[in-house]
Nucleic acid binder design. Structure first.
Lengths: 323, 323
DNA sequence: CGGAAATTTGTTATCGCTATCATATTCCAA
DNA sequence: TTGGAATATGATAGCGATAACAAATTTCCG
């Protein structure tokens, strides 16, 4: 920067201004400086800039796994929206369960992000303390709680459980099962599903728990295990479309008629859900909206605006061919 | 850091050493310092550290879109492998086509990454110049060229085209079609496919081009368009499993027998490929290996090791039920 | 027990930029 | 013409760490 300044016949601070607040520099000067920058191929150092200004222009995002479509789409829209405002995304994957979250958070806070995007609302006590101390805008997503650390963009997993139960009851099913990954949010949906059914006098239902992350194979095996203790006709609520897809395949191979003898509801409305045979009934979450609104929340807070702390983006039970 | 040093009765540089090179600090001293760090909740500032040491401990990754499973899995394994060595990943999505790549690169280079992961081998002249000037380890992936900017982990799209053609010829198909996304790499596969067939005296084949990114719907429509100019029996090579999935669905709805009257080959071996009905023949790329080996290449170069510049990870034609 | 080698700790000078305050220049109405 | 606001630029002092070298302390062996 010093060299650029010398070549342009100005002081370094003027170069800095041309780059960051061009509106306060005389047009002629700015042009001259820009020409030198172009000619020399000068690349500013954002580390130094960030150190001096305490603004790093990036946001850290923590998700359990980016290879999960559900999260990758949210990250995509987060990245896109932030890019428009000149921010970038530092990615961290915490794993299932969030075994690395604490270390990850420490590593991330060392970089002084301007904002943090966190998947889920349950973090270790130590993590929470660090986050609060860091005094940085934080948005938690994928869940709802009245007491977020800072901001929140999510939906009620409890309501999902209720809504799916209600939907299946409406379709006339009287026996129910759950195939669920071992995951905190899936667990909330499962419990709500059960409790809703029990308020309707239905206590008779079996649960199969499978390890996270869920997979097609686990879905197939899950149905097998479920049918050892439950008998048809039956409606199954799966904690993900991936599991549901496996259940559907297993049903076909056992020549169980879907939705006649076996109702299936997934979760997520992944790409393939509308294209299975029959197409999968499921719960749709607007993943893109999560990323976008989370970005807006962070940007708003960064700019010191008054942003709403909690956004419930809801969900939709999608009735297709498996119920 | 100064405060921690004072409380521990040492100089700041000793604190720095406890954090970065604990092996050269006396155990007693280190323990004392660590206790103070713990007690005060001191969070080191990696911006300042990076500025002084010229090591930022992160790698930038540019992919067209993270919501594409093909890339998200590579990023996942990249992130995982780098994490083990204390590095993090800054994510950038360049879009289809790579419209944002140049700006993205500028933004990224400003942060002085210790390494760069780039999808693809075709970059603008300006981008290449910047990358070379930056003098930072770079690994390009998903393609093969004898002249990478720095390092390369990929496979030959040309060979994929040849191999698929050979496979289909072996299955007895005599008429062929291509449904391909408008994407540079897909184009290479398509051309190789055609040229391989033409060496076998087959010139009669139709191509349908669809815009990227590909989707189930584009696959369905693609088959419709293809059948306007080609007639069955036919074998179709799709540029992605997603397209192939759509083709398969369209074939079913038109009551075209697969693989009897219509052979289908996808590309990517995505999650669902083995679970369509019939299961999809496709080309498998070890996406996880790409991320892992790219990480190893970058880490090796960062540590000053002599790493092999070009790694061909190959591919596999997977014969399932649609050919 | 002496002195060279090995180990441990400290001093100083940056790294490349921006915040803050100060100064110079321009503009315009009186 | 003049003085005060508005505009444009500059000087200085950090931001919070580490590199490089220097000094102090300990270790070790004949």
């Amino acid at each position: 920067m010093k060299d650029v300044a010398k070549l342009a016949g100005v002081s370094p601070i003027t170069v800095s201004r041309v780059l960051n607040r061009p509106e306060i520099v005389a047009t002629g000067t700015a042009e001259r400086v820009r020409e030198v920058i172009e000619r020399t191929g000068y690349v500013p150092n954002l580390l130094a800039g960030g150190l001096a200004s305490r603004k790093t222009k990036f946001v850290a995002a923590i998700v359990p796994a980016i290879s999960n479509q559900v999260f990758s789409e949210a990250i995509q829209s987060l990245t896109d929206r932030l890019w428009e405002s000149g921010y970038q995304v530092l990615l961290g994957t915490s794993g299932y369960p969030a075994s690395r979250e604490e270390d990850l958070l420490a590593a991330i806070l060392s970089r002084r992000p301007d904002g943090i995007f966190l998947t889920g609302i349950s973090h270790s006590a130590e993590s929470c303390r660090r986050l609060v101390t860091a005094n940085v805008p934080i948005v938690e997503v994928w869940d709802l709680t009245p007491t977020p650390i800072d901001m929140l963009v999510g939906f009620s997993h409890e309501n999902v459980g209720h809504a799916v139960a209600e939907h299946l009851l409406g379709r006339g099913y009287v026996r129910f099962g759950v195939i669920s990954a071992d995951d905190a949010r899936a667990e909330v949906r499962r419990k709500a599903f059960l409790s809703h059914l029990s308020t309707r006098g239905i206590a008779d239902l079996s649960t199969v728990l499978v390890p996270a992350p869920s997979s097609f194979r686990l879905g197939r095996e899950g149905l097998g295990r479920l049918l050892e203790e439950a008998h048809l006709p039956l409606a199954v609520f799966c904690s993900s479309d991936t599991l549901a897809h496996g259940v559907l395949a297993e049903a076909r191979s056992r020549r169980i008629s879907v939705p006649g003898n076996l109702g299936i509801v997934g979760f997520g409305d992944l790409d393939f859900a509308a294209h299975t045979f029959p197409p999968l009934s499921t719960v749709r979450i607007d993943r893109t909206a999560i990323g976008r609104r989370a970005a807006d929340a962070l940007l708003g807070r960064i700019e010191g605006k008054d942003v709403e702390r909690i956004a419930d983006i809801g969900f939709q039970v999608i009735e297709r061919g498996t119920t």
